[in-house]
Write a protein that binds this DNA or RNA. Structure first.
Lengths: 202, 202
DNA sequence: GTGATGTTTCAGAAATTTCTGAAATTCCGG
DNA sequence: CCGGAATTTCAGAAATTTCTGAAACATCAC
């Protein structure tokens, strides 16, 4: 690996973390390299710098493309494929979350919906059925909120994030003015998504 | 596997998804079983229902405990360990996010901070250094927001989630009334993503 | 067409992770 | 102490994933 200590350290870390992030070491390192690079790199550049086999790099790039995490570019008078990561980090965060949601949440949500079609037979099943329904509702609330947030422009998003919990005060204040109905503490039984509004659906 | 079709389907799905969630199939299935169960189960119950080896179940339970995802219980006149998942799904979501953050984000954040100590030598390194700093700031914003949200009571949290993007309107309104200082971006301080970049081609 | 250049596929090798059975350990009541 | 029930550990087997080199494929300039 022929990289500056800074880059090498970063690249190796991303490799290590790769497995926790659901990608493999190679892919993590390739991504890290592209992320730091100040210009697009082609497959052979990557082979040179990381020392993987050509085919492994090819596979890795393919996987990164499947994740929408890299951009394919072409330079004039050069027909090799060059790759880069978006300059805008927020774009990266958005794709990352989108793709993870797609792979890790959506399949489960549809499975849960499917399972709710089954009528529970035994008392044990009745409990399981209720549990599944509750989980399903919860995930719907979360993904609905996410898709809502995802529609905001980045500036607005940053604004909200920076507010943090202070946002709560705004809600309270507005509540006291407009007097929105405020639910009582007894929330254990009532479904956590009782207040879902129509446009929240995914 | 001796389970009702409903439970079996759910358990198998969680097993499949396990790998995407960074746990293995066994662990996923054990968790799913406990999640659906209307009473705590001991290791042998799990062996009976899922057909894994005793030691595998033991390992799986240990991992689930490391993730804080199961509760250890004891029944009177029985010294076996019984396990269950919290009744409150929000508690589950919170631990899930906490633990994933701990494993997937925190180590990277400290690595990034560490790397920022290094002074960049080459021009290439200068770019890498800037990129790392930017990433670091972004993650700090996100984790800061998260820890803020995490402090809210569940009721409040649900309230905010249900509001979704409508929250933005509140912010705008309050801004226009109270005239909160809306920052102009002139220093590097203003926003971690202030570095607006030229549009990227497809 | 041909040759030069670049990319992808794929079967098997290498590495890693998961799973098991047997042995070791812990815990408890006498 | 002992006996026995419950749990954990651990070395190796089994399964899965990752990685490689060689061959196949694609595209372009001539």
């Amino acid at each position: 690996m022929r990289l500056s200590p800074l880059q090498q350290d970063f690249v190796l870390h991303f490799g290590e973390m790769g497995s926790r992030w659901g990608i493999n070491r190679t892919v993590g390192q390739i991504y890290a390299l592209l992320f730091l690079s100040d210009r697009p790199l082609n497959a052979d550049d990557i082979v040179d710098r990381l020392g993987f086999s050509r085919s492994n790099v090819s596979m890795g790039l393919k996987e990164l493309q499947a994740w929408n995490l890299v951009r394919l570019k072409h330079l004039p008078d050069d027909r090799r494929d060059y790759f880069s990561t978006p300059d805008d980090l927020w774009e990266i965060v958005r794709t990352l979350i989108d793709e993870r949601k797609k792979r890790e949440i959506d399949p489960t949500l549809s499975k849960l919906r499917e399972l709710q079609m089954q009528e529970p037979a035994t008392p044990e099943d009745r409990h399981a059925h209720a549990r599944i329904a509750e989980l399903s509702r919860l995930i719907e609330l979360l993904t609905g909120w996410y898709s809502d947030m995802n529609r905001l422009e980045t500036d607005r998003l940053v604004q909200l994030l920076a507010l943090g919990a202070k946002i709560q005060r705004l809600v309270d204040k507005t509540e006291s003015i407009v007097s929105l109905p405020r639910r009582k503490k007894r929330s254990a039984e009532s479904s956590p998504t009782a207040a879902t509004s129509p446009d929240l659906k995914g």
